[in-house]
């Protein structure tokens, strides 16, 4: 099967896996545990494309009509 790079599609937001330090920083700025972030399944095409594993945190940079750019974080969970 030909692998399709979903990130080349203009409607797919940019995303990347956060490093350990970045995750620690994120936890500190929001004062939360990782599980308190919104979740994303590891089977999600986005996670598959990034190679994210359960326990990772990914950062998603969306284009937003009102805010220009909106940043969101997601905690990768199995199932």
């Amino acid at each position: 099967m030909v692998k399709f790079d979903i990130f080349k599609h203009e409607l797919v937001p940019k995303a990347r896996i956060l490093s350990k330090e970045e995750v620690e920083n994120l936890k500190k700025t929001y004062g939360i545990r990782k599980e308190q972030l919104p979740w994303i399944r590891k089977n999600d095409p986005m996670c598959k494309a990034l190679g994210a594993k359960p326990g990772d945190v990914i950062m998603i940079i969306r284009k937003s009509e009102i805010a220009g750019e909106a940043i969101a974080y997601r905690y990768v969970v199995p199932w």
Binding site: L37, S64, I71, A72, Y73
Partner: peptide, 10 residues
């Protein structure tokens, strides 16, 4: 737990 990182994104 967080639902939105900034209210209404802006």
């Amino acid at each position: 737990s967080i639902v939105q990182f900034k209210y209404g994104d802006d």
